[in-house]
Design a protein around this nucleic acid. Structure first.
Length: 83
DNA sequence: CATTTGACGCCAA
DNA sequence: TTTGGCGCCAAAT
């Protein structure tokens, strides 16, 4: 189980309507300060099976999204995770 | 194999 | 309070 696999598993385990920060995901992955790696992994290796749109920034910002940031916000709002 | 990038986060000014 | 700069880990090139 590599770091990115853990990250994928964690993000995949995020319930609908819930949102985690990159830092939280990294922390659960085993490296609390690898939040950079989390973004890198998701950014370069995006998977359709993974609801990475539920991963937001610590500031409460949406962060980014390969499919389009607007689409991500739309999904979050639709799920009720975003105000 | 070494260097740069990358969807971030925190500290300082 | 807002803007700028530095630091971090892992993957990709």
């Amino acid at each position: 189980m590599t770091f990115k696999e853990k990250v994928f598993n964690i993000v995949k385990g995020i319930p609908e309507g819930e949102t985690l920060t990159y830092k939280e995901v990294a922390k659960r992955a085993g490296s609390p300060n690898a939040y950079r790696a989390v973004g890198s992994i998701l950014g370069t290796n995006y998977d359709s099976n993974i609801p990475c749109h539920r991963v937001l920034r610590s500031d409460g910002g949406v962060g980014g999204y390969n499919r389009g940031i607007e689409n991500k916000k739309k999904i979050l709002k639709k799920e009720g995770a975003l105000a």
